[in-house]
Write a protein that binds this DNA or RNA. Structure first.
Lengths: 310, 310
DNA sequence: GATGCTTACGATACCCGTAAAGATA
DNA sequence: TATCTTTACGGGTATCGTAAGCATC
C-alpha cells in the first residue's frame, strides 16, 4: 500500500470510474493506474470496485468504507506538508478564499488590502463562485476558506462560523413613486415588478420568506447573480431592485435611491467556513481574524477538533 | 513521503531516538532508517529531530506536531487492513484482550468460552497485565480491548464504558473472631493486620478511601496482585483479607469464610476500553456484547466517532 | 573502546510508460 | 468502430543492506 495507490482510489471515484481520466488527472499512465488498483485489491484481498467485464462501475461495500479512510489519510498527508511549510516558509504560501460576488465586491476589499500589506509574500487567490460551488471547493480541498451567506451552514464535513449580519435594501430610480412613501411596505413593493438575486444567492431565501409570510406573490421579472447587474436594470426602469444594503453607495450609484427595508426582510448572516480536519496555515487564521476579530485561531481550532469525524 | 518513512518517525520516538533499535524493531537496516529520516526532513524542508552532532535527542516543535498526524495516518493504514480483513476473512482473525488477573480468572472465563464457541477461527489472545500496562497496550495498538477496574477512565486517546459493578468482601480463616461479629465495621476490621491488593489494582482505591474517610490507618501487612495470593496468606493466618467478592467461592475456598462488606466499601465499576479511532473487527464488537449486552456495536462506534481527535 | 549515526556503493525490486491485445458500448 | 481496460515488457529509479568512516559517550 502506498500513497499513489490511495490517490488513485480517490481520483477514480472523483472521475466517475474512468481510469483514463484518472491517469490524466494524476499525470501518469492509465496502465499504471489500472495496475495500482489491482495491486491494492490483491494486497487487501478484497474487490474495491464493481466491474462489468473490464469496465469499472462503482464502489463495493468495502470500497466505500475504505474510501472514507483513504480521504482522511490523504488529507493528513496534505496537512503534513502544510504543517512543514508553516515552519519552513513561515510567511510564504498560498491562500485560496472561495466567495460570492457580493462578498468579493463589497465586503472583502478592505480585508484583502490589509492582508496583502501584512503578508506580502502570501499568494492570495480569490475564487468567485456560487455558494454550492464554494462548498464543493472546500470539500475537495481546492479552497481553504469559504465565505457566503447561503449553503455553508450544516454541511457535513465543514465547520462554519457566523461572520457578520446585514440586511437588504430596496433600490428604485430617482423620482420613482415609492421614493415618496415614508414607510415602505411589502404590499406596496409587490405592486411593482421586482429585480433581485437568483435563488440560492445573497439572502434570496429571506426575501422569498418575507413575501410568502405576507401572502404576496411579487412579479420577479429578472434575477441576477450580483447587485451590479440588478442596479443596471433598475436604472433602465425594469422594476424595483432588492439588493444587499452594502452593495449600494449613494456616491457611486447616482440615479438610484435606496429605501430603508430593515423592517421588511429578516437579517442575513454571512458565514465563514473551513473544511473539517484541514490544517490551516497561520496566515489563514490571520485572514479570518481580519474578517471577524472575534474568530481567533484557538476558537476555530477548537471547533474543528470537536467536529473531526462527524 | 512514504509509509516506511512515517513508520520510522513513529518508531524513532517509541524507541527513544535510538536508530539502531528502530532498525531492529522494523526489521530493516539502520543505514536505511537514517537515510529515510534525512530524506523526509529534506522533502518537508524542516528538521524533525533535535541533534547533537550525530546523536538524536528529541523532537523539534514541528516534529511534535507532525508526529500526531503521523500517528493518525498509521492508525488509518492499519484500519484499512483490518477493514479489508473484515470482508475477506469474515470470521477469521485475531483479537487481543488486555485485562487484569481478577477479570481473567473470575469474570471472563464464561465470556471466553462462549466467544470461542461462536468464533472458532478467531485467535483470541488474553494479555494479563496491570491497569497501567493495559492503557499502554491499547494506545500502542497491541491490544484491541482493555478491561480493568482502575486507570481506564479519562485517559485521552481511549474510550471507556462501564462494564459491571462489584464490591469487595472480607475473608478470614474459619473460626476467626470477626466471623462471629453480626455486623462488621471498619474499626473492627482495622484492629487486624490486612492483606489486600497493591495500589492501583482491583479497586484498592476504594478500600483506602473508606479507611481514610473513617480516620483509620489499617496495618496493611502484605499486598498482592491477585486474590489467589491473598487467600493463601489469609489461610496462613497473616491477617484478614479484602478481595473482590467474585474471587471467593465457598466450595473452592474451604477453610476460609467471607464476610459481608457491602456497607464498608464503595462499589467498584469495571470498565472496558478501546482505542479512539481504532477500527475494530466485527467479532471484537461481539466479544464486547458478550461481556455487556448493553454495549452494542452502534453505541460504541458512536462514542468513538464523537471522540475522534480529542 | 563501545555504541551510534552517516555516507558510499552495489544488488534488487518496484514503479512507470509504451505498445499490443482484449472487452465493451 | 471508438472507447476503455488489461497484460506484457523494457528502462529507469528508489529502496535496501553491507561495509566503511566518523562522531559521541
Amino acid at each position: 500500500m502506498n500513497f499513489q495507490q490511495l490517490r488513485i482510489v480517490r481520483e477514480t471515484v472523483r472521475q466517475g470510474f474512468n481510469l483514463t481520466e484518472v491517469a490524466n488527472a494524476l499525470y501518469t499512465s492509465q496502465s499504471g493506474v489500472s495496475k495500482h488498483l489491482k495491486d491494492l485489491e490483491e494486497e487487501l484481498g478484497i474487490e474495491l470496485f464493481h466491474r462489468k467485464g473490464k469496465r469499472l462501475l462503482g464502489l463495493t461495500e468495502p470500497g466505500r468504507e475504505l474510501l472514507s479512510v483513504v480521504e482522511r489519510m490523504l488529507l493528513d498527508a496534505h496537512n503534513i506538508r502544510q504543517l512543514a511549510d508553516e515552519f519552513s516558509k513561515r510567511d510564504q504560501g498560498r491562500l485560496v478564499v472561495a466567495t460570492t460576488h457580493t462578498q468579493a465586491r463589497y465586503v472583502l476589499p478592505p480585508v484583502v488590502a490589509r492582508f496583502k500589506a501584512a503578508y506580502p509574500r502570501v499568494q492570495l487567490v480569490l475564487h468567485q463562485a456560487s455558494p454550492a460551488e464554494i462548498v464543493q471547493q472546500l470539500l475537495s480541498g481546492e479552497a481553504d476558506i469559504g465565505i457566503a451567506t447561503e449553503s455553508l451552514d450544516g454541511v457535513s464535513g465543514l465547520i462554519s462560523f457566523p461572520y457578520y449580519s446585514w440586511q437588504h435594501t430596496v433600490i428604485v430610480p430617482e423620482g420613482h413613486s415609492l421614493a415618496d412613501d415614508p414607510a415602505l411596505s411589502l404590499p406596496a413593493l409587490a405592486r411593482f415588478p421586482v429585480v433581485t438575486y437568483h435563488e440560492g444567492f445573497t439572502g434570496r431565501t429571506r426575501i422569498d420568506e418575507a413575501f410568502a409570510a405576507a401572502g404576496l406573490h411579487p412579479d420577479v421579472v429578472m434575477t441576477a447573480l450580483d447587485a451590479d447587474v440588478i442596479k443596471t436594470y433598475v436604472e433602465l426602469g425594469l422594476g424595483v431592485g432588492i439588493i444587499a444594503a452594502m452593495a449600494f453607495s449613494p456616491a457611486r450609484d447616482k440615479g438610484l435611491v435606496a429605501l430603508d427595508a430593515m423592517h421588511l426582510f429578516a437579517p442575513n448572516t454571512t458565514r465563514l467556513a473551513v473544511r473539517n480536519g484541514h490544517y490551516l496555515r497561520g496566515f489563514a487564521y490571520r485572514f479570518i481574524e481580519l474578517c471577524a476579530p472575534a474568530l481567533e485561531e484557538e476558537i476555530i481550532r477548537g471547533e474543528v477538533r470537536k467536529a473531526v469525524g462527524e
